[in-house]
């Protein structure tokens, strides 16, 4: 794995974080379908059973309800289970245990028992997979009190956030954007340094527009920001990373500068995280806004089979269109808005 500087992919960073915790915490167990000898269908657990033994890295029978429920029992008795769902599309049989038990055990027992479980699942579209292998339903889970929903968007954040998720005393749903599992490499030292949960990351600074994106959409969002930059618009790109609880402060701080915001996500729009972010922005920073918060999202349709998934997923063009709408909107006198000025000169946006 990796070279001398340990330059690795996102999926390799997941493996590295799992290995670090397995090595350093005897309470950690990793289990799921095909995570043993096969190393997981995406190879996220490659070599772990060989290194740490079949008593701590276990293949389970094929039953997602069971995977979710067994993790609850393990966690209440002092273990740190890291359970893998093979795809997010197959997590729903386990929802009962996540919603009804994992996230309630601490509260139900008034702190007597806790449930420090990590549920991992590859998620999102764009890999030409069969039906049920491409959905992004993070909003369903972000609605659940007591849960953390974490999505990394780079190898370094995958490593640091997964370490933090495993060490966290409460249940975490860790969604891995499989479209970028191998999209890029970066040096990720295996130093066991966790990144903070509940904190957004500013990936790019800018003062004209705030773009909020997570998971695989960060890739297109950064590309859109570069294209905007070429025409003189500097976008700030924020990755919330922890979708629940949400660090709205970092987004509001950015809006102090930019006053315009676009939220990008693959998931369907209605009731999506974009709605929550837009609602919080208008609650906390209504007077800052020069334009309505734009949502650039998947459509409110069923995620299509892969022939049409490119049309469904928000790409750079859709993000730029959302950016244009936010930048061109003016609620004040003509000419009072910097971006309106910039546009009135006829400068073509990318």
């Amino acid at each position: 794995m990796g070279d001398q500087q340990n330059t690795i992919t996102l999926v390799e960073a997941v493996t590295q974080a799992l290995a670090f915790e397995l090595k350093n915490n005897p309470e950690v167990v990793v289990f799921g379908q095909d995570v043993g000898a096969n190393g997981g269908v995406f190879r996220a657990t490659e070599g772990l059973q060989e290194r740490f033994g079949a008593a701590r890295v276990l293949d389970t029978p094929l039953a997602e309800t069971m995977i979710a429920g067994v993790a609850v029992g393990m966690a209440t008795q002092g273990l740190r289970p890291v359970a893998e769902f093979q795809f997010m599309g197959f997590i729903y049989p386990g929802l009962d245990h996540i919603l009804s038990h994992a996230t309630r055990m601490r509260n139900r027992t008034r702190g007597r028992l806790s449930c420090p479980v990590v549920y991992r699942a590859p998620y999102g579209g764009g890999i030409h997979a069969p039906e049920h292998h491409s959905e992004s339903t993070e909003a369903i889970f972000a609605h659940i009190p007591g849960l953390r929903v974490v999505v990394p968007s780079s190898p370094a954040r995958a490593y640091g956030l997964l370490l933090a998720a495993i060490r966290d005393p409460d249940p975490v749903l860790f969604l891995e954007p499989k479209r970028i599992y191998r999209a890029a490499k970066q040096p990720v030292p295996d130093d066991g340094e966790a990144l903070p949960l509940d904190r957004a990351f500013v990936l790019r600074e800018g003062c004209d527009l705030t773009l909020v994106a997570w998971g695989a959409s960060v890739k297109e969002t950064l590309e859109a920001a570069e294209q905007l930059s070429a025409s003189g618009i500097e976008a700030e790109v924020i990755d919330p990373a922890t979708l629940k609880p949400l660090d709205i402060h970092t987004i509001i701080d950015s809006l102090e500068k930019t006053r315009r915001c676009v939220v990008v996500h693959e998931a369907a729009r209605f009731g999506g995280l974009g709605a929550e972010i837009a609602a919080q922005i208008q609650e906390y920073a209504f007077d800052l806004l020069e334009a309505p918060v734009q949502r650039v999202t998947g459509y409110d349709t069923v995620m299509p089979y892969y022939q049409l998934e490119g049309a469904y997923l928000p790409g750079v063009e859709r993000i730029l269109a959302g950016a244009r709408t936010a930048l061109e909107y003016s609620r004040c006198e003509p000419g009072s808005s910097i971006s309106a000025n910039a546009l009135s000169g006829g400068e073509a946006l990318p």
């Binding site: 429920g69 067994v70 966690a75 209440t76 008795q77 289970p81 009962d96």
Partner: peptide
């Protein structure tokens, strides 16, 4: 919720066996 505790018991048993 019906029968969910049976899976929790299995998880607890795993923890006991590991201990």
């Amino acid at each position: 919720p019906i029968a969910t505790q049976m899976l929790h018991a299995v998880g607890a048993a795993f923890a006991l066996k590991q201990r």
